[in-house]
């Protein structure tokens, strides 16, 4: 009975959605999008307009977003915390193939991640994407060296310092140029389409990249070290 109702509700929803399709697929940009596209270069001189929006025009939102990511990592750590009497994580040693592969690849993955977030204002990509790439490298390392503990102190420091740096850049903008996370007037905007351009945007995106990389690495480490559920406590 419940399933029939659910399917019925889905059919009604499908009917409503069908009316939305022509409405949502109208060509052309919104007024705000048009403003950002037209004046984005003059305002920030960053080639990637999406980065300009995420880091500058809506920089405060991104600060909130980074906080949400931090809170979710904290929540996962709280939910999966080791209780009294739960068995310790007992790893199976990794195969030599994985070990050698991880040794070979970890450096280049780290480099690719850094490249992606350093060039966030020029090419597709940025702090979140580069941080995820770095975390994937750390995942490889965790899987290859299961007997070694990841330094949570180092990650926590990296994470909090980069978060602090983000807020600090915002405050510098408030003091120097009169608005939180201001770009114009804080640093020279540089030449369009060069690495050293777009003022504070690359600095903020590098900090975001480090923060996201550290957070996601912590997340992966917590989840992998969770003991098998057979020994779960009550």
């Amino acid at each position: 009975m419940k399933q029939v109702l659910a399917i019925l509700a889905l059919l009604v929803l499908a009917f409503l959605f069908a009316g939305l399709v022509p409405m949502a697929s109208k060509p052309g940009n919104g007024a705000v999008g048009d403003y950002y596209a037209t004046h984005g270069i003059a305002d920030n001189r960053g080639s990637n307009l999406v980065t300009s929006i995420v880091v500058n025009y809506r920089g405060l939102d991104t600060l909130g977003e980074v906080t949400v990511l931090f809170l979710s990592v904290m929540g996962v750590g709280f939910i999966l915390r080791r209780r009294e009497g739960t068995p310790k994580y007992s790893p199976v040693p990794a195969s030599p193939i994985l070990n050698t592969g991880a040794n070979l690849l970890f450096g280049s993955i780290l480099l690719l991640g850094a490249y992606i977030f350093v060039h966030g204002h020029l090419t597709p990509g940025g702090g979140f994407q580069g941080g995820s790439v770095i975390a994937s490298g750390v995942l490889l390392l965790i899987l290859a060296r299961r007997d070694r503990e990841l330094s949570h102190d180092l990650l926590a420091w990296l994470e909090s310092l980069s978060g602090f740096g983000y807020a600090l850049v915002g405050l510098v903008g408030l003091v120097v140029a009169g608005s939180f996370l201001a770009n114009k007037g804080v640093l020279p905007l540089g030449t369009w389409n060069r690495l050293f351009s777009a003022g504070v945007i690359p600095i903020i995106y590098i900090l975001i990249g480090l923060k996201v990389g550290a957070e996601l690495s912590t997340l992966l480490d917590i989840m992998i070290r969770e003991p098998a559920p057979e020994g779960g406590g009550h």
């Binding site: 940009n29 999008g33 048009d34 950002y36 004046h39 984005g40 307009l49 999406v50 929006i53």
Partner: peptide, 9 residues
């Protein structure tokens, strides 16, 4: 920039 060349960012 000529916004008519770009999709909505």
């Amino acid at each position: 920039v000529n916004a008519a060349n770009l999709v909505d960012p």
